[in-house]
Amino acid sequence: MTDFWKRYQRNRGAVIGLIILLAVVLVAVLAPVLFPQSPWKMVQRPFLPPFAMERFPLGTDTLGRNVLAGLAHGAQVSLLVGLISTLVSLVIGIPIGALAGYFGGWVDDALMRFTEFFQTVPNFALAIVLVAIFEPSVQSIVGAIAIVSWPPVARLVRGEVLSLRSREYVEAAILSGQTNATIIWRQILPNTLSPIIVLASLMVATAILLESSLSFLGLGDPNLMSWGYMIGAARTVIRQAWWLSFFPGLAIVLTVLALNLIGEGLNDALNPRLSRKGK
């Protein structure tokens, strides 16, 4: 573990990313304490510019709602959606990839053609269609993001399993009479974990971006304050009130950047042999 941390902290960017992410998580966790009132509450006159009033450092929006409260509560939504949809897509992608890689043959063919079917449809377009069909709600958004994001997981796991499949310890396990399920679960998957973790951290970032894009288009959960919603609602007034789209935009950029930096750091830390020379 200390080894891991040593290798991780060698990547300066990754450490900064981690700090930013921790800060965002902290804000999300503390949001109900810092801003106990609903972020939808109209608290001041509309279009109050930032820094004009101490109580509302980031100003108010088109209806006089506190932008800072919206950002804090939005952090909850963005992180939660990012995390859960990534978990769901892992749950779909890992078994498909593992089965395809382990059994090969027609199972592999069938599963991979199925995966490719999803890969050929543009991600975002499919997500829009799914959310529109099932009516925008936090469940349908998480579901849609998961459904469009699992194919890369499946392909990655398949590749890893394919290469591990012919290792001696796997053949030994087969000879010792272990069942296929045990071999996949106990022998192979633990060894594919590090690339999956790296991929997952990047997927959380993508999921946050997807959720924001959906909300921006008005396909967000109408009962939840999210960053994408804030930007979408501010779009029409961008010339009168720059701060309404700027701050949530900044929040998205920072969070996504942090997750990408962390992903890179994890990659260096988990695959020491792959880590770039000279660092």
């Binding site: 609903s38 939808w40 509450k41 109209m42 088109t62 209806l63 109408p222 609602a233």
Partner: peptide, 8 residues
């Protein structure tokens, strides 16, 4: 926006 205001 109007719906959001009424909801509030």
């Amino acid at each position: 926006r109007w719906a959001e205001a009424i909801k509030q």
